[in-house]
Design a binder for these strands. Structure first.
Lengths: 113, 113
DNA sequence: CACTATGCTACGTTATTTGTAGCGAGACAA
DNA sequence: TTGTCTCGCTACAAATAACGTAGCATAGTG
């Protein structure tokens, strides 16, 4: 087993062992609030606190963690004047998810029956 | 605070407080292995153990939990002869995510630069 | 019967999330 | 300068979720 002294940064235990981009991506997006953050930024940048409110008051700890990951992945950037916003590739990613909105409605209708 | 005796099924603490379908969906999909499970079932049903192998050996505890949730949501079903498979609406959901594969490749190329 | 595979659960350990509080930096006014 | 905003971000203990290993009951097959 691996020792972890206090000075040692916690190595991410998660993630695809294969390293295939799709798996890395699915792992990143499959963390609490990741999808939601991208979703909430779809209409424009938000400050960290506005984002927090938009995410049902999720704790700042996770939000910062997710924002760091999403920034490192290149999907989100911090602009001093306006807060957190999607990058070009981040917007591309979001567009991949946009049909989800329509799907969610269809899904709900089916569930009612 | 709500008491939770052993006979009481754990009420989900998570999820969108708004109850909007898109939020419920984003929360469900934003749990560990949810996206991955749907992804691994894209080419056909898998038995629980095959699915486990396909998911880098994720623990059966979470897999069962996610499978229960995904079944309850109507995305996955258990077929006695072939294991876990996507339902019709589950396949629709997956198709929403399929462009993600191509995106992941584009993403990787950009990251290399 | 023994053997194998299925779906699923128990349980102790580890990792992640939560909730609350607060820091330091910068902007702006008195 | 002092006060008071807001900003991004962090600390820390408690709660929750996930991990890893082992194993159960059932069903099929030989």
């Amino acid at each position: 087993m691996m020792e972890r002294g206090p000075a040692m940064k916690k190595r991410s235990v998660r993630g695809s062992k294969s390293g295939r981009p799709i798996m890395v991506l699915l792992d990143l997006l499959g963390r609490r609030w990741s999808l939601r953050i991208l979703w909430q930024l779809r209409e424009g940048p938000l400050t960290s606190r506005a984002l927090r409110d938009a995410c049902d008051g999720a704790s700042p700890t996770v939000l910062q963690a997710r924002l760091s990951e999403l920034r490192q992945a290149g999907f989100v950037e911090l602009i001093r004047s306006s807060g957190y916003g999607l990058t070009a590739i981040g917007r591309e990613l979001l567009e991949t998810f946009l049909p989800l909105h329509r799907f969610a409605e269809r899904w709900r209708k089916q569930r009612k029956d």
